[in-house]
Simulated assay, not measured.
Amino acid sequence: MTDTEGSLAEPSINTDWMHQLKSITLHVEGDPPPMWPDGASEEYRAARRKLAEAEMALRDQVEAVAALRRALPAGAVLPDFVLTGDGSVRLSELFGEHRELVVYHLMFHPDDAEPCPMCSMWVDGFHGVAKHLTQRAAVAVIAKAPIDKLREYGERRGWQGIRLVSAHDSDLPRVLGVEGSRGGQFPAVSVFARDDDEGIRHVYTQSADFGDGSGRGIDLLSPVWQVWDLLPRGREDWHPHNSYAVSPSRA
């Protein structure tokens, strides 16, 4: 494996389970995938088939967009910004042994008591799959709030499994455009790559809003919105907040 393929210490992929699980080995080739139970009307079946065609077209569009993203030219070379974690930590140190770094820019102004509830929901999702994400890339959450305030909130929220870093005294948010002219914070995701010859390169940044002001810029990164879109009622006007419990209940 070369350095450009991800982590320098990336473990080999074991797919033996695909040939061991009865849930897979008992499949019969040609069995149709489930889309309705017995008793579904022909009207429902026809509409569901049409929806399946649209869903497959959406899948193909998502794949095409991902290919365009991967084909972006080399981005700008960035300074090795000094941030705050366990003492001072440089942006380059967040990579660890990986070649790529994914950052969620948490909307948490230094004067706010808590971050944006929408951002909290997104980080809940990243935290839940962090063990999987870090098999391929480094992951960190960066906020403008001071490190003590950020960590105190992270402990209450249960974010012990994801790296929290403060950009309180750093120009990183301003340089990336995730901080406005008056200090307002933008929720966004950024990707960086480590270049052996030139240092750290910016790869991609996308805010929760697109450049035209429309939303849903990073909705695909949150499972909550995807599940709400499955419901007959859709998303409606639901918004998350920081006051309800996020710890999993025990049966």
Rank of each mutant, 00 (worst) to 15 (best):
V165L: 04
G154S: 03
A193Q: 15
H241W: 13
G75E: 07
T84N: 06
L51G: 03
P73K: 03
R70P: 00
R201K: 11
L106S: 06
A140V: 09
H19P: 00
T25D: 08
V139T: 10
S214I: 00
S190D: 06
Y204I: 05
K144I: 07
V224I: 12
G154M: 02
Y104N: 07
G217S: 02
Q61I: 05
S41V: 08
A167G: 01
Y104P: 06
G154N: 02
D38W: 09
M118D: 14
P34A: 09
A71K: 05
S41F: 03
R70I: 05
P173E: 07
V141H: 04
G158C: 03
D86I: 00
E97M: 01
A9E: 08
Q61N: 10
Q160Y: 08
C119L: 11
T84Y: 03
T15G: 05
R48M: 13
A74M: 06
L68K: 15
R90V: 01
R157N: 11
R99E: 04
K50C: 05
Q61G: 07
H98M: 00
A9C: 09
V189W: 01
P73T: 05
L8A: 08
V175M: 12
A67W: 02
F108Y: 15
D86W: 00
A9L: 13
L106Q: 08
L106T: 06
L231Q: 15
A140N: 07
I200Q: 01
V89A: 04
A145T: 10
D169R: 09
V102G: 06
T134V: 14
H98G: 00
M1N: 06
R69C: 09
M18G: 14
G180R: 11
E29R: 13
L68H: 06
S207Y: 05
A130N: 14
K22T: 09
L21Q: 15
G211F: 03
D197S: 14
E43G: 10
Q20T: 14
E97N: 08
E55D: 14
G177T: 03
V227S: 04
Q61L: 12
G180H: 09
A57V: 09
A47T: 08
R182N: 14
L106M: 14
A47E: 15
W36L: 13
L230N: 10
I147R: 12
L91P: 01
G39C: 07
Q226S: 13
Q20H: 09
P248V: 07
D38M: 06
N14L: 05
M1L: 08
R90S: 09
I200M: 02
H241E: 12
K131R: 14
R90G: 05
A47H: 12
T4S: 09
V65M: 08
G158W: 00
G125R: 04
Y244N: 12
R182P: 02
L21T: 11
H109A: 12
E198L: 13
A193H: 12
M107P: 01
